[in-house]
Write a protein that binds this DNA or RNA. Structure first.
Lengths: 131, 131
DNA sequence: GTGATACTGAGAGTCGTTCTCAACCAGCGG
DNA sequence: CCGCTGGTTGAGAACGACTCTCAGTATCAC
């Protein structure tokens, strides 16, 4: 299962992980996939992503701290490795009074492919908003 | 409905909005609430928030660009008004090739209340991870 | 009043996820 | 080899959030 996740260069949803794992062991059930995914996440060997489009959670075997850019056209998510400056975190902690332990950051826009193929976001026109 | 949202200083879920609206007009149905919420979001008079905890979407009548800090203890979300520097956006756009139109940023940690009341995250221990 | 149109509420349906429970399996003592 | 125990599994039911469908109702022009 972790192998399936490691082999995936995209960010598969639980359903996609289920489908891929089923190719290797067809008798597996979805409950086991969700259980194992939860286990991997809780032991820190995978990351659960909520890419803010209200859709299913995605999973990522890249456990280093990183963010994502999500394409409004095709829904693809690519990794972004560019941390928020510490100074900004400290400033926000100071202003809000929160003890900040982490953050989730997703950029949205159009991936190079969708920019090339004319810019009509065919998929989930609208998206989550919050912009 | 927009009044209910404007009166809310928290960030209510659709179910909470439904409940509050129902106090004013008890015969309203949930479909109408979801429809109206979607309308408000699509006309830019409200913001839909996915706070990444896998739970229901939240709504916010504050339509200015802003981010949120979510408490791992009580689930409360407070507004943060501290934009990501333009330089960082440009750098990420350049590196990823994306035409970036916006971003969603949520900080997580413990709010001042939960820091005071001992720091056992009673609620959704675990959270979304991605950190 | 009549018909066209738009909106509404109730409830069914869908989707992603979690729960429940019987079946199964490995390990162990006899 | 047999039965027991405790953990894991898969199937399917259950759940919560959300969307769809459809009949009923309101609104309007005529």
């Amino acid at each position: 299962m972790l192998e399936v996740l490691r082999a995936a260069d995209d960010h598969p949803t639980a359903a996609e992980v289920y489908e891929r794992v089923r190719r290797a062991s067809p008798r597996i059930g979805s409950a086991t996939v969700y259980r194992t995914l939860a286990l991997l996440v809780s032991t820190g060997r995978a990351l659960e992503l909520n890419l803010g489009d209200g859709a299913a959670a995605r999973y990522d075997a890249n456990t280093r701290r990183h963010d994502h850019a999500v394409c409004d056209g095709c829904g693809r998510a690519v990794d972004i490795d560019h941390p928020v400056p510490d100074g900004m975190m400290a400033e926000i902690a100071r202003r809000s009074g929160f003890a900040i332990t982490g953050y989730d950051l997703q950029f949205r826009g159009l991936c190079p492919d969708c920019q090339a193929n004319g810019s009509d976001p065919a998929r989930t026109a609208g998206g989550t908003g919050q912009q």
